[in-house]
Design a protein around this nucleic acid. Structure first.
Lengths: 261, 261
DNA sequence: CAGTGGTCTAGACCACTGT
DNA sequence: CAGTGGTCTAGACCACTGA
């Protein structure tokens, strides 16, 4: 096989062979990462056949002048992202369209990464108070110890969308209202050297109280989407606890799940 | 350093040195996986210090008679699960409690893996119909082509919890009501050779209609949690589209997010 | 400075798939 | 059967951390 003009190949595979990857060994960026980025870009731009094979790893490593483990590491990272699928005895394929974009762009992720980014956010309340029982439990601090409480109103297109109430250990961070409104809470934490590791979320729904209705421009009794979240440090220490209330008429959680093999 | 009785070490590290891992080279289970499982078990049972170091990779590989990449692969898989954290120049630590269990046990994951498992599920409707416009779009089939529609009522403790409405390409699968009620949809798909790869979800809320209220034993206008999901094959082909409605008073989505490094 | 994880190499054998 | 990915080895050098 693999004579000059094999039809089954030419239909889908020329993409990869004609692609040239620019690997810079002097760069501090790891080789496997450079390769992964360029493969991802090729997939994103549709240069790489969606659904068809991606040439075997050995050839690829020879062609690129890399070792096979390095190539595998690059491919594996894209498999983990859900962009590629490997089949033993068959090959590596690009996953069919549709499953590409929203992998990292779910609104949940947005909330984590760039809370307060796109839309406007207004700080309604910002003070240090003694921790109530449930807040203390969520943050893993003593009841009555100082915590920062933060109430924010988020709007898009001039319309209220959500009421965000957050608690943080007071010792953790200095918060500046102006930066909070422009930069967002998670960005501020990140630039303060706090690396987020995981978060626990609970999503439910309930009817709006009269006050919530007034603040969110909904009728009393309207359906609201609620979310409670506790976010953890990479040491497992809780760094934030929040209760968010969204107008169901103007907000949905969109996200993508990857099923572990 | 590392003299006989170093205090800083003895406080946390004896766990690992006294652990003996049983690696079976004859087993078809990969060595890295055997090691990962046993490390995970040690963490789960609290044998391994939460928050403290886990000895360096080189020593570990020598002690186990494995190569370092193999040991790294085991450790990496636990890092990906969020159980361990690596710090360059420092070491590998067990993440502090709290962030362990619910990683794979979120109710979202449950829904995916074992829909219809714990609680009882009753098939209310099960027929083949021509695809409506939105269903056809979600499943990537032609409008009017045959799809299986499935309405189920899920209960726990004798109380209704959710109305599940699902659509599948009719050609995909033979569904048996009895097995559906006992085994669950996703298990049936799996045993039919369909390997799930990813799913897209949209969660929101709205007020119950009179009919929904009657079926779910809620008042008309009560807040309901809604979820739409499209699940994809590992080729990216949509294999299921569903609309689920939950009683917010009896159901919440609980899940854990991991922040990619 | 010594110790750690992060990256990389150049091989090897095996298990599985499809023809 | 040939071709693929899956696993594994035994080294190497580097970048970073903390004392």
């Amino acid at each position: 096989m693999a004579k000059t003009g094999d039809r089954a190949r030419t239909a889908a595979a020329p993409a990869l062979s004609s692609l040239d990857f620019a690997l810079d060994r002097a760069s501090p960026v790891p080789l496997y990462y450079q390769l992964a980025q360029q493969l991802e870009a090729a997939i994103e731009h549709g240069v790489l056949a969606p659904g068809n094979l991606l040439g075997n790893e050995v050839d690829l490593s020879v062609r690129l002048g890399l070792s096979r483990p390095t190539v595998r590491q690059a491919i594996q990272s894209l498999v983990d992202k859900g962009l590629l699928v490997r089949r033993r005895g068959v090959g590596t394929q690009v996953v069919h369209s549709q499953v590409k974009r929203p992998l990292e762009l779910s609104s949940l992720y947005d909330d984590l990464e760039e809370a307060g980014q796109g839309p406007t956010t207004q700080v309604v309340r910002h003070e240090v108070v003694p921790a109530s029982c449930d807040v203390a439990a969520a943050l893993g601090v003593a009841e009555g110890s100082e915590v920062t409480v933060l109430d924010r109103l988020r709007c898009t297109h001039g319309q209220p969308v959500a009421l965000l109430c957050n608690y943080l250990p007071a010792s953790l961070l200095d918060l500046d209202d102006a930066r909070l409104e422009s930069t967002g809470l998670y960005r501020m934490m990140r630039s303060a050297g706090i690396t987020l590791h995981s978060a626990r979320q609970r999503v439910s729904a309930r009817a709006a109280t009269a006050e919530e209705g007034a603040r969110l421009d909904e009728e009393e009794g309207a359906a609201l989407l609620t979310m409670q979240r506790t976010a953890y440090d990479d040491t497992g220490r809780p760094v934030e606890y929040g209760t968010h209330i969204y107008r169901a008429s103007r907000y949905t959680f969109d996200f993508q799940l990857l099923v572990r093999p």
